[in-house]
Computed example of a mutant assay.
Amino acid sequence: MTEKDYLAWLAVKQVVAFTLRHQGSFTYAEVRQYLRDPSLKLAGYKGRPMNFRPWNQQLRQPIILTSESALISMSPIEGFLHPTFHTDTLGYDEPESACRLTDNQGELL
């Protein structure tokens, strides 16, 4: 499975999870709100729950370092953890990043 395959599978899995919880019709806005909920815990099968950063919609996920035959490490590593979300330990955090996902009027999506 490539990165694109995994992310496509994860996206479809989350939309299906939402539809199974909501009987009847629903709107795009309801699906979007569900995916943006900070308490959302995506089961991405990487050992830790994942969700999306509210300020730029990036998927928070652990980084797995492997060799051909072994798991070497899974980041973030104990001792270097973010105080709120462990997977925000890697890369830039909200105060350090100018990246914001906004609509045409400049409002956060």
Rank of each mutant, 00 (worst) to 15 (best):
M1S: 14
M1Q: 10
T2E: 07
E3K: 12
K4S: 15
K4T: 13
Y6E: 09
Y6N: 05
Y6P: 01
L7V: 04
A8S: 11
W9A: 15
L10W: 10
A11W: 11
A11P: 03
V12Q: 12
K13N: 14
K13E: 15
Q14P: 04
V15D: 01
V15K: 09
V16F: 04
A17P: 04
A17Q: 10
F18L: 04
F18Y: 15
T19N: 02
L20W: 09
R21S: 14
G24C: 05
S25D: 14
S25Q: 14
T27P: 05
Y28D: 09
Y28M: 06
Y28S: 06
A29Q: 14
A29K: 13
E30W: 05
V31R: 05
V31C: 13
V31W: 08
V31F: 07
V31N: 08
R32P: 00
R32C: 02
R32G: 02
R32Y: 03
R32T: 03
Q33L: 03
Q33R: 13
Y34K: 06
Y34F: 15
Y34L: 06
L35Y: 08
L35I: 11
R36A: 07
D37Y: 01
S39H: 11
K41F: 02
K41Y: 02
A43M: 03
G44F: 02
G44Y: 01
K46H: 02
K46W: 00
R48N: 04
M50Q: 15
N51V: 05
F52A: 04
F52K: 03
P54F: 05
P54L: 04
P54M: 02
Q57L: 15
L59S: 04
R60Q: 08
R60W: 04
Q61T: 11
Q61W: 02
Q61D: 03
Q61G: 10
P62Q: 06
I64Q: 00
L65H: 00
T66R: 12
T66Q: 13
S67Y: 03
S67C: 05
E68C: 05
E68W: 04
S69W: 10
A70N: 12
L71R: 06
L71Y: 03
S73V: 00
M74R: 02
M74A: 06
P76A: 07
I77A: 01
E78F: 06
G79C: 10
G79S: 10
G79Y: 09
L81R: 13
H82S: 14
H82A: 13
H82P: 07
T84E: 15
F85A: 09
H86R: 07
T87N: 15
D88G: 04
D88H: 07
L90E: 00
L90K: 01
G91K: 08
Y92I: 05
P95C: 11
P95Q: 12
S97N: 01
A98K: 14
A98W: 10
A98M: 09
C99M: 13
C99N: 14
R100N: 11
L101S: 06
T102K: 11
T102W: 01
D103N: 15
D103A: 09
N104S: 12
Q105P: 00
Q105Y: 07
Q105T: 10
G106W: 09
E107S: 03
E107H: 07
L108N: 11
L108A: 12
